[in-house]
């Protein structure tokens, strides 16, 4: 059965590119365009890994990450944050809540995302 990736990303273009790329790799993909709907979506989709943007309308990525870690069903899921931020304090903050990896948009390619996701799911 195909592994499932859940993407929380508010930018429609980036979201669709990421979805397209991951589906090409044979992953099943579910998405949420905002922080509020993310947790419900994750609980429904039961993904194997989550890609999480930090700057989101409504609930931000840190808050979503906290909810993921606080929930018994999702607390052990690998979470890769990808964000525009990437300053030390942002990374430290995400690490403190319990992020598995941190990618800065524009500094990586979708191939890097694929490699990263594969490394967590092997």
């Amino acid at each position: 059965m195909a592994k499932k990736v859940f993407i929380v990303e508010d930018d429609e273009f980036l979201r669709s590119l990421t979805v397209k790329r991951l589906e090409k790799e044979g992953y099943e993909v579910a998405v949420s365009p905002d922080g509020e709907g993310a947790m419900a979506g994750i609980l429904k989709a039961k993904p194997d890994i989550i890609l999480l943007d930090l700057l989101l309308p409504g609930l931000n990525g840190y808050e979503v990450l906290q909810k993921i870690r606080d929930n018994g069903e999702t607390k052990a899921l690998p979470v890769i944050v990808f964000s525009n931020l990437g300053q030390r304090e942002d990374i430290e903050k995400a690490k403190a809540i319990g992020v598995n990896d941190f990618l800065i948009k524009a500094n990586f390619t979708l191939d890097d995302v694929v490699t990263k996701v594969a490394s967590f799911l092997k």
């Binding site: 273009f13 948009k105 524009a106 191939d111």
Partner: peptide, 22 residues
């Protein structure tokens, strides 16, 4: 700079996919 990163990532990823023939 932060806001530029989102559209830049979009352009870069699109080019990458085109370039790789995906």
């Amino acid at each position: 700079t932060h806001q530029l990163r989102t559209p830049l990532a979009g352009i870069k990823w699109t080019f990458n996919m085109l370039q790789a023939g995906q």
